[in-house]
Simulated scan of single mutants.
Amino acid sequence: MPPPTYLYKILDAPPPSPLPKTLPSTELDAKDGFIHLSSAEQTPITAKLFFARCEQLWILRLKPEALDGKIEYSSDPNNGIVDGFAHLHGTRRGLGKDNIEKVLEVNREGAVSWVEVKDMLRLQD
């Protein structure tokens, strides 16, 4: 399977505007020592699993070739992920204005799952 054209980072709060050179790490990324990323197909599943209580998310679209560090993939067959989640290890730059191509604000209403939100299903691989 070819690598995705884009990778995505989900945030539960808006990033600063304009984007800084480097965004602060999320609590989970700092704890785990790498940046958690998803492909377009995985992003709605990731949102469903880890952001179920949020009504609004900010999705950072990243080009893998603009990231420093090493991208490694890990699978989670119990949650339907067989192609592997992308993890960015050893980055010195992190995420910021030089590698975030686009910030997408995505909203959902009521009890609708993130896997049903049209804007999430329209992300590009």
Score class of each variant (00 low, 15 high):
1 M>E: 07
3 P>L: 14
3 P>N: 12
5 T>N: 15
7 L>D: 02
9 K>R: 15
9 K>F: 09
10 I>H: 10
10 I>P: 14
11 L>I: 08
12 D>L: 05
13 A>E: 11
14 P>F: 02
14 P>H: 00
15 P>M: 04
17 S>N: 12
20 P>F: 14
23 L>D: 00
24 P>F: 04
25 S>M: 12
26 T>Y: 02
26 T>M: 09
29 D>H: 01
31 K>G: 04
33 G>P: 11
33 G>T: 04
36 H>T: 13
37 L>W: 13
40 A>I: 02
43 T>E: 06
43 T>V: 11
44 P>T: 06
45 I>C: 11
46 T>S: 11
47 A>L: 11
47 A>N: 04
48 K>C: 10
49 L>D: 08
49 L>V: 01
49 L>Q: 06
52 A>S: 13
53 R>S: 10
53 R>D: 10
53 R>T: 08
56 Q>N: 07
56 Q>P: 07
58 W>S: 07
59 I>H: 06
59 I>G: 06
59 I>E: 01
59 I>A: 05
59 I>W: 06
59 I>P: 12
60 L>Q: 03
62 L>W: 09
64 P>N: 09
65 E>S: 10
65 E>W: 10
66 A>G: 01
66 A>T: 03
66 A>R: 11
69 G>L: 13
72 E>A: 15
73 Y>T: 09
73 Y>H: 12
74 S>I: 08
77 P>G: 00
78 N>S: 15
79 N>L: 11
81 I>R: 06
82 V>C: 12
85 F>I: 02
87 H>W: 03
89 H>M: 05
90 G>A: 07
91 T>R: 12
91 T>F: 10
92 R>F: 09
93 R>G: 02
96 G>L: 03
99 N>K: 07
99 N>I: 05
100 I>Q: 05
101 E>G: 07
101 E>P: 08
105 E>M: 08
105 E>I: 01
105 E>N: 14
107 N>L: 01
108 R>M: 06
111 A>H: 11
113 S>W: 01
113 S>Y: 03
114 W>E: 01
114 W>K: 02
114 W>S: 03
116 E>H: 02
118 K>W: 01
121 L>D: 02
123 L>F: 09
124 Q>N: 14
